[in-house]
Design a protein around this nucleic acid. Structure first.
Length: 425
DNA sequence: TCTGGGGTCCTAGGACCC
DNA sequence: TCTGGGGTCCTAGGACCC
């Protein structure tokens, strides 16, 4: 059995470059929401020493001097581009597993090495030619090893983007050359501990006895260890249905006003409800959280959250927003400047499996709410010209209404909005 | 002045039950 | 005075991922 990990290089930056070819070869970064910090870097900006998650204000001087090109994130564009890449992959093999917006695993069973290699080359070239996105592909017997191979495909030009780990010698050599902190599953917290235990490479880790790994790191560590030995442990595909859906934002300015914050929370809740309906799901739990500015040690901190339980799983905006607002009222305290808030809906089930409640929420009202949500969804689907919904509940205030979000370096919505596409032409 | 957003899984400890 | 033990479920928090 073989897995191929297909990974889009510097994905968000590469998406921007498709529509702005003049950025090729230049240092480019894409910023997070609110132009907060760096979330994607071109190789040239990595070479400048810019780290992932660097706050933008620390590198603003590079942008001002013209050294660095900065883009605000354009999530709709990236999602659209991701879909195009994934559909090419899905056409290439019988089974793919989309792991994230910029990564997917291909299952390559029953093929010999040459066939695998040639398939990977074809995929790489098609994605590059048809979508314009450069990818790296790592092939190995397990997903963790495919990640290792993918890293080599990315950092060593000699591979031409495809690295195959198809012999025992290559596996051992690759593990020897892979720092432990670059292994999938070894994160920020574990890496320093590893070095304390005298482990600096993946090979050092793989050389420890299984029992030792189990004692120190538990089942998670054992899985990684097994996978590095070439034995498949991480196979299960993610379930179809997400287990929780979160909508949250940091605010450009701190919010102190109760009404203002509750409108944002209502909006987050309505977005969660909409996402639920899009997936034909319903949720039993609605969690509301808010946070003060954790970087301002000089200010009082307060970061409460609460989960409101619904009697019957719901997906109508009215019910989800209602639950979120009741949670909001439980935890809101005056006198703080809130920098971030959000809503998480959890305990998600299929909406067609929902049993009507015998008591509690009135069935007639529920039905009315569901129908209202359907109508709103339909109207908003057919009237989306500005990227924001036309209809919303009175309690909401759209977080993307412009005046409250910063996005000074935003690219056009090249692939997703007709008015802007027409404008480009 | 200025620091993202959205997920998953595991585990320890408490509640509860017999 | 003396106060079991084991199993299961739930939850909060931590760690990881992109």
């Amino acid at each position: 059995m073989m897995f191929a990990l297909v990974d889009c290089n510097n994905f968000f930056v590469s998406c921007e470059r498709v529509f702005r070819p003049e950025l090729e070869g230049r240092p480019v970064v894409v910023l997070s929401n609110n132009d907060g910090c760096v979330v994607s870097r071109s190789n040239e900006s990595k070479a400048l020493g810019i780290k992932m998650c660097t706050p933008f204000y620390k590198i603003r001087h590079l942008a001002d001097s013209g050294t660095l090109t900065v883009c605000s994130s354009n999530i709709e564009l990236y999602r659209d581009m991701s879909g195009r890449v994934m559909s090419i992959l899905a056409d290439a093999v019988p089974r793919i597993e989309v792991y994230s917006v910029d990564e997917a695993y291909l299952r390559l069973d029953g093929m010999n090495e040459e066939a695998v290699y040639s398939l990977c080359r074809t995929v790489l070239e098609k994605v590059r030619k048809w979508v314009g996105i450069p990818v790296s592909i790592g092939v190995a017997p397990t997903k963790t090893l495919a990640k290792v191979a993918g890293r080599f495909a990315k950092i060593h030009k000699g591979y031409g983007g495809v690295c195959m780990m198809d012999t025992e010698e290559k596996r051992l050599r690759a593990l020897e050359l892979t720092p432990i902190e670059d292994v999938w599953g070894i994160g920020r917290r574990l890496a320093p501990q590893m070095s304390g235990w005298g482990i600096s490479t993946a090979l050092d880790f793989a050389g420890r006895p299984r029992g030792w790994v189990s004692g120190k790191l538990g089942v998670h560590g054992v899985r990684t260890w097994e996978e590095l030995h070439g034995r498949v442990c991480i196979e299960a595909e993610k379930s179809e249905r997400r287990k929780s859906i979160c909508t949250s934002r940091s605010f450009a300015e701190m919010i102190e006003d109760e009404g203002e914050l509750s409108r944002r929370v209502s909006d987050f809740a309505a977005r969660c409800a909409r996402k639920l309906r899009e997936e034909h799901s319903a949720a039993c739990d609605v969690t509301v959280f808010m946070q003060t500015n954790r970087f301002r040690c000089d200010l009082a901190q307060y970061s409460p959250y609460v989960t409101v339980r619904l009697d019957v799983p719901a997906s109508s905006s009215a019910e989800i927003v209602g639950a979120a607002l009741s949670g909001f009222r439980m935890i809101w305290r005056p006198g703080y400047g809130y920098k971030r808030a959000g809503v998480i809906v959890g305990n998600i089930v299929a909406s067609d499996a929902v049993q009507p409640a015998m008591f509690g929420f009135d069935a007639g009202l529920r039905d009315k709410n569901d129908r209202l949500s359907k109508v709103m969804d339909a109207v908003n689907r057919s009237c989306r010209t500005s990227g924001r919904p036309l209809l919303h509940l009175a309690a909401q205030r759209s977080v993307e209404s412009g005046e409250i979000m910063r996005c000074d370096y935003r690219s056009r919505r090249y692939s997703t909005l007709w008015d802007e596409i027409i404008e480009v032409k």
